[in-house]
Lab assay of single mutants.
Amino acid sequence: MASQGTKRSYEQMETDGERQNATEIRASVGKMIGGIGRFYIQMCTELKLSDYEGRLIQNSLTIERMVLSAFDERRNKYLEEHPSAGKDPKKTGGPIYRRVNGKWMRELILYDKEEIRRIWRQANNGDDATAGLTHMMIWHSNLNDATYQRTRALVRTGMDPRMCSLMQGSTLPRRSGAAGAAVKGVGTMVMELVRMIKRGINDRNFWRGENGRKTRIAYERMCNILKGKFQTAAQKAMMDQVRESRNPGNAEFEDLTFLARSALILRGSVAHKSCLPACVYGPAVASGYDFEREGYSLVGIDPFRLLQNSQVYSLIRPNENPAHKSQLVWMACHSAAFEDLRVLSFIKGTKVLPRGKLSTRGVQIASNENMETMESSTLELRSRYWAIRTRSGGNTNQQRASAGQISIQPTFSVQRNLPFDRTTIMAAFNGNTEGRTSDMRTEIIRMMESARPEDVSFQGRGVFELSDEKAASPIVPSFDMSNEGSYFFGDNAEEYDN
């Protein structure tokens, strides 16, 4: 783990906690998980779902989305002020799938948001429990990260689609708070800032007046979040320049895209947490497990152990491969979309394939898809080993990566060399080191050039047997250095459309 220093740990961010010791953190995270579980059980009762239907990941996603929508204050306010045809701002819903006479049927349900809020609060001892809501947002974000390569979004903001390893959390809503900021990748933060800068260039009043003052505060806050992700002084200094700019424009845009590229080699610290679907927490609570009393951590053995003992089902389209669908969801559960496939294969105990080789589309089923041909199958979400999630980018030494994705962002704290394609990355730096950030740029390029592919990161860190909950005997895996390590390699994943 990167030293926490003055930073709060993510469990504290996750639970809005002030400084807590490890036991208190485990208890408050457990409380959050228990609340999600209780809410899910109650919703299944309301909807009269069978046990099997309640364990269907598509039903879980609909129920999670309903509660997130019920608590989305800004959108609710907007919907009330701008009524649109056929949208009731006070209601929320989605597809629920039921097994009827041996076939899967889709039923569109509609609930009062007020009623959903009441059920959620009741499951969370009367609190709004925003930490639990954020947790579900991060699960949705991790699922998107594993399912889609955001080529269009990258290109629109002047970045290269091969930089997708920097895009963790790119679909997280803005209201996801400190826990959300911690899991956002460098590219995601750059993209958010670039969008602001572009608006400022096109709209003279963007930075002016009372609204402009708020915009400015948001801009500086985002700059500080991004600065905190960088691990070298030169990158941090460049972020200070971007933040202090009187009138952010093209120079800042250039600096930010430069920094994003540099992060492929001088990786930023991005938190990883295993956020599971509500249909995993519900049955665990129903079986009598007391998360608050037992304590829970999002970055240790607990999620692995929970998945070892969970039964989750998914709808499967006619030509999809259930094992591939399982891999997709497994990666999402562990926030591992940008991790090295060699490491993932070792931990999972079966070969993890790149996205383009998977015969599976996303987990969600569109409303126009034919239910007649839908089957369902068990998702295999178990693992051979477990490993500690990392909050750091690993040290800054790398190795060759593949054509589709030119770097990785480690999820697990496991000893290995970190793949990246130096030639491709360095070719993108057209040696432009003039301007006010020239000395920093020169320094950053120097550090990137001296990074050695064969150097090892996370020295001495290994994986653990599932029986080793105290992480007492690390097993340090050895990897084939020459092997392909990137998930979005030469990829044809669908595009994420909101």
Rank of each mutant, 00 (worst) to 15 (best):
M1I: 11
A2R: 00
A2T: 08
G5N: 14
T15Y: 01
D16Y: 10
D16T: 06
G17D: 00
R19M: 07
A22P: 08
E24S: 01
I25M: 10
K31W: 11
M32G: 04
I33R: 00
G34I: 10
G37M: 11
Y40T: 01
I41S: 15
E46A: 05
E46L: 14
E46Y: 08
L47M: 15
D51A: 07
Y52G: 10
G54L: 11
Q58M: 10
N59A: 03
L61N: 14
R65N: 14
R65C: 03
L68H: 08
A70K: 06
A70V: 10
D72W: 06
E73L: 09
R74L: 06
K77H: 06
Y78G: 03
E80C: 14
P83G: 11
S84H: 07
K87H: 06
K90C: 01
P95W: 05
R98K: 13
R99A: 12
R99W: 07
N101Q: 14
G102C: 10
K103E: 13
W104A: 01
W104P: 01
M105L: 08
R106T: 13
R106E: 05
Y111K: 04
E115W: 14
I116K: 13
A123H: 08
N124K: 08
D128C: 15
A129N: 13
A131E: 00
N144Y: 12
T151D: 03
V155C: 08
M159K: 08
M163Q: 12
L166Y: 04
S170A: 09
S176Y: 11
A178S: 15
A178V: 13
G180R: 08
G180D: 11
G185M: 06
T188S: 12
M191P: 00
E192V: 10
M196K: 12
R204A: 04
R208N: 04
N211L: 12
G212W: 07
Y219L: 14
M222I: 13
N224G: 00
L226P: 10
K227Y: 14
K229T: 07
K229W: 05
K229E: 12
A233M: 06
A237T: 11
M238R: 01
D240N: 11
D240G: 09
Q241D: 02
S245A: 15
N247Y: 07
G249E: 13
N250F: 07
N250M: 14
E252A: 08
F253A: 14
R261F: 07
S262G: 12
I265E: 04
I265K: 10
I265M: 12
S269C: 15
S274G: 15
L276G: 09
C279R: 03
V285S: 14
V285G: 14
G288M: 08
Y289I: 14
R293P: 00
R293A: 12
S297Y: 10
S297Q: 02
S297G: 13
L298D: 06
G300D: 02
I301N: 10
D302L: 00
D302S: 12
P303K: 05
F304W: 15
R305G: 14
R305M: 11
L307K: 01
Q308C: 11
N309P: 09
S310F: 11
S310K: 09
Q311N: 00
Y313G: 09
I316T: 14
H324F: 02
S326G: 15
Q327E: 13
L328W: 06
L328F: 14
V329R: 00
A332S: 15
S335P: 09
D340V: 14
L344P: 04
S345E: 08
S345H: 11
F346E: 01
L353Q: 15
R355K: 11
T360V: 13
R361M: 04
Q364P: 13
I365F: 11
S367G: 13
E369Q: 12
E369F: 11
E372R: 08
M374A: 12
E380W: 05
L381P: 10
R382E: 08
R382S: 10
S383V: 12
R384V: 12
I388T: 12
R389N: 09
T390E: 01
S392V: 10
G394N: 11
T396H: 15
N397I: 13
G404S: 14
I406Q: 12
S407D: 00
S407K: 02
S407F: 00
P410L: 09
S413Q: 05
S413P: 11
V414Y: 09
N417C: 15
P419H: 14
F420I: 10
T423F: 14
T423N: 15
T424W: 10
A427L: 13
A428Y: 05
A428Q: 02
F429A: 01
T437G: 00
T442C: 06
T442K: 06
T442S: 15
T442V: 15
M448G: 10
P453M: 07
V456Q: 08
F458H: 07
A472Q: 12
V476I: 03
N483M: 14
E484T: 14
G485M: 06
G485P: 05
S486D: 05
A493S: 09
E494C: 02
